[in-house]
Write a protein that binds this DNA or RNA. Sequence first.
RNA 1: GCUCAAGUGGCGGAAUUGGUAGACGCGCUGGAUUCAAAAUCCAGUUCUUUCGGGAGUGUGGGUUCGAUUCCCACCUUGAGUACCA
Length: 939
Amino acid sequence: MRYDFKAIEAKWQDQWASAQTYKAEQPSNKPKYFILDMFPYPSGAGLHVGHPLGYIASDIYARYKRHRGFNVLHPQGYDSFGLPAEQYAIETGQHPLKTTNQNIARYREQLDRLGFSFDWSREVRTSDPEYFKWTQAIFLKLHDAWYDNVSDKARPISDLLYIFKTKGNRNLDAACDEQTEIFSAAEWLAFSEDQKSDILLKYRLTYLAETEVNWCPNLGTVLANDEIINGLSERGGHPVIRKKMTQWIMRISAYAQRLLSGLDNIDWPLALKESQRNWIGKSVGALVHFEVDQSDEKIAVFTTRPDTIFGVSFLTLAPEHPLVARLTTSNQQQKVKDYIEATSRRSERERMADVKTISGVFTGAYAVHPFTKASIPIWIGDYVLAGYGTGAVMAVPCGDQRDHDFARFFNLDIPNIFKDVDVEQEAYTQKADVLLKDSDFLNELNYAKAMPIVIERLETIGAGQGQTNFRLRDAVFSRQRYWGEPFPIYYVNGRPRPIDSNYLPLQLPKVDQYLPTEDGAPPLGRATAWAWDTESNSVVDNSLIDHQTVFPIELNTMPGWAGSAWYFFRYMDAHNANVFADHEAMAYWKQVDLYIGGSEHATGHLLYARFWTKFLFDLGLSPVDEPFKKLINQGMILGTSAFAHRVEGTTHFVSKDEIKDQKTQRIHVDVSMVDASDHLDTEAFKIWRSDFYSATFITNKQGHFVVEREVEKMSKSKYNVVNPDAICDQYGADSLRMYEMFLGPLEQAKPWNTAGISGVHNFLNKLWRLYIDQDGQLKVNDQPGSKDSLKTLHKSIKKVTEDIEQFSFNTSVSTFMIAVNEFSSQNCSSKEILEPFLILLSPYAPHIAEELWHKLGNFSSVTEQFFPEFDPNLLIEQTKVYPVSFNGKMRFTLELDLNLDKADIEKIVLSHENTKAQLSGLSPKKVIIIPGKIINIVH
RNA sequence: GCUCAAGUGGCGGAAUUGGUAGACGCGCUGGAUUCAAAAUCCAGUUCUUUCGGGAGUGUGGGUUCGAUUCCCACCUUGAGUACCA
């Protein structure tokens, strides 16, 4: 009987589903293991072969962990709020929920074919009201919390109210807006309710503020910093401009230090930790105040190198700096005005792209050096950014290359404060052990020693203090979109009030169109029933707003990352109606042990999820403060695009090897029309797109039309997408699973090549034929396995176990192939060998393993078996002794099986004549010697 | 510019406390089977060679009896990030 993968796979998928084989136990006495994939956004295009890569890896690991006796939680769900469904709704008027449900159904169908061991009973969808009710509830908790810098954690607003009432905020150290007034307890009590409400907003962990935001006119919404790449939107590549808007904002900056320190204790790829560190951007230094000559003004600068303060030769302000206008002397007035105008005409993007051009202007004013009292010219330069630090720098040309360039360009002083260093040509920017000179009390000190001293002196004379700056900005949380979580907020006198969490979910209202309104309000502004009645605690018609108890509801919705910032907790207790996840369930599952997904979420999702987890931890709602213990980034599977060359301005296509001098354009052709030798099926191509119907082809001498190949990202528009369904039809899910692993290391990007799958497919066929004869009868006996077969088996067990634990799934596939080849040549048909081998194989190719397992007469599932252990005694290598001549000297390289201490080894080795005889039957070690001297002992 | 990662056959890739480089698969070549094809099986496949060998893991050095592996410099590619003071 042939290996009928289609029937086998369908049969076991049904069986597993109906028996709920992969349901996680709860409660359970077993040790837990939580393994999670980044849940997908269900797009209309469906899955391509690149998507399941991470899911296959996590599935192998989940199955392995079950074999090891763990209670495995391996769930899946959908990040189902998002732009594409809304875009489609705008175009067609169809409710995004309908599109979303259709896409989810399609995704599920595709996922099911691959034999994943997901516990679907815990599925979550971020757009499900039963889910987003808790997203809204967590938002309200953030709204009802502030950050206490002293205890270094979030606390409820009620604590803050008590502090205000009893002590005011004078001695309070809390994360808050920059311009927050100081008040006493008495003053607080005298404030009106509106005033109190405004002040509290400056402390809440999610607050409403008018800020400059990144506005994308084409998308009609604001974007967070991580959604912008080079001044263009990540999605769609539309231009983004700065605009003032009132927005909900997450005070993630309060957690900057903890988000940074937390990275030290989690097992994540270095590159990913590095980009989070960059994004958080901690710099330790000092704030220094420079008095301005003949003025009461002070200029504050932030510097990471206060030790170089005696090298300051000028100050530079950003053109947008608020003091610019007041400082500029009358005779410089015009020049400064022209300069500011010129720079403001340049967009942020131009300014960032063009870092070579040096420009600036003198203000005419001078500052006073805090120590030397020397006069320091104040300049304006657009290399200083208004948005970072204080928007002003103390320029130390000998220690900073930008300052150096600026000084040279405008012919300013470059005083040298570094001993034995030449700063004529370029600045000395290292913090190495070079000593300072011409620096008064810092002379003869290095960076490390000078830092604390100079900061202390600055503090003594009141000219500054040590300070730590973070680049991490608070995250804008409002989107002018329909298809997202509504904010549980209504407005009284223009001031936000929370809707009590008992009345959640606040569901999305019906709208006639999904576009912003004519006057620029978000799509929810079109809803006719979008007002909150505080009496009935329900949504009512807008016409009732005149009524005393009825108020307008927030029109923005939450961003895509809201639902994904906590979804891992929901899997622990997916159906709880009273709380986002039960305390006991969370205490058991704790955190995600292994998280697999792409690296594109480095500074978005992965940072926000850590932020929310830390917040929930502070409130005692999470037992852990890091959500993902170990994280692996799977590499992308790339597509191999094909191009046909067309002579420019014609419909003539030229085979790649026939191109002479003609100017040609490359046209993407669908990869399904190209064979393994890169030959295009020209007839199929002609009917593929109507505009190519009359195309003519210049083929090569063999009569073939050769296309050009290139590896690119897999995408519909590049016609290089390979659909997993087609692969399953032709080769089966087990082949696909093994092949995706076989392609290369999990973390690496690698191109897809359908031709290669025949290798693993042949392997599965071979395995089948080895144990099943033509009539479908089992070719297995109850004889014990031969010594060779046992050795093959245990070699495989050892290798596969090591591979899985190190996530080197690609080499395991080779191991299986070698084993089956060896079994075949050993004529191995022992049940004793086959059974453990099937358990070993089942994480990779669960269907065929299950089928053969049952054919062997077993009734329970192969997934319930314990993973086999290897017997080291069967793995003893043969003793090898080989002499090698080197430089006329004789030396010996020995690989011995032994379990002896160094002295014994020496003794044996030095009498190597009968080494082999003496060493057989002991556990493996390696010794490498030259006569008379042991060079290396391998333990 | 900075940070990180990686450079091995025609291709994907193996090989680490330093020990016979190229496992395994694709592709290719030859053979068996077949009327033929598909499928399957067997053999070969880094380059070079006067068939003794010789060279070889991006380049150039170094450490070592021995280096794909460790160290230094450089080149290339990829990823991230960018006037961050």
